[in-house]
């Protein structure tokens, strides 16, 4: 397991290569990248500022990974989440899960993103044509995370 919270960009291909290097048990790798959109709730977004709670963020993400490792048979997990000033099309977040079989990798990847979105202490502030605004949490994200409770 490896979790990074960083200002600088990342390279998915290098991260995937690192994750399975030397491990011939890996048969499946699922990954997700989140990008900055140029539009949100009807307004053009020119820039976002991502704030976080440094001493909590790392711990929280590691705890989410541990939960995923208990539920699925995983060989490796990599999470990178950026903070600071980002522009449309910039990469925000990377999640990679590797396993012997694809269903574990797919499900774990989705679980990790659902939990990250609703638990990790990050906050986005958007710059739009009518000024700055804090992004509001979405009910659909809570619903996406809660579906894992029942299974």
């Amino acid at each position: 397991m490896s979790v990074s919270v960083q200002r600088h960009d990342f390279d998915i291909s290098a991260e995937i290569t690192d994750l399975y290097a030397g491990n011939t048990k890996v048969g499946a790798i699922a990954s997700f990248i989140g990008l900055v959109r140029d539009m949100n709730d009807g307004l053009n977004v020119t820039e976002i500022e991502l704030e976080h709670y440094p001493s909590m963020t790392q711990k929280c993400l590691e705890s989410i990974v541990q939960q995923a490792e208990k539920r699925w048979d995983l060989n490796g997990v990599r999470i990178i989440h950026r903070f600071g000033t980002l522009k449309p099309a910039d990469q925000i977040v990377l999640v990679i899960a590797s396993s012997s079989h694809r269903s574990d990798a797919f499900e774990a990847c989705e679980f990790l993103m659902d939990y990250l979105k609703t638990q990790a202490p990050f906050w986005k502030k958007e710059s739009t044509e009518v000024g700055e605004r804090w992004v509001e949490a979405r009910k659909s994200d809570d619903e996406a995370a809660s579906r894992w409770n029942s299974s």
């Binding site: 991502l50 711990k59 990050f122």
Partner: peptide, 26 residues
């Protein structure tokens, strides 16, 4: 102390308490 609390929690000397809006990362 860097963990979200749902119910009311007793405070101890030296605690770090953080207040924030619902998170919006990812």
């Amino acid at each position: 102390n860097q963990e979200v609390v749902m119910a009311t929690q007793i405070l101890q000397d030296g605690d770090e308490v953080a207040f924030f809006p619902p998170v919006t990362g990812g």
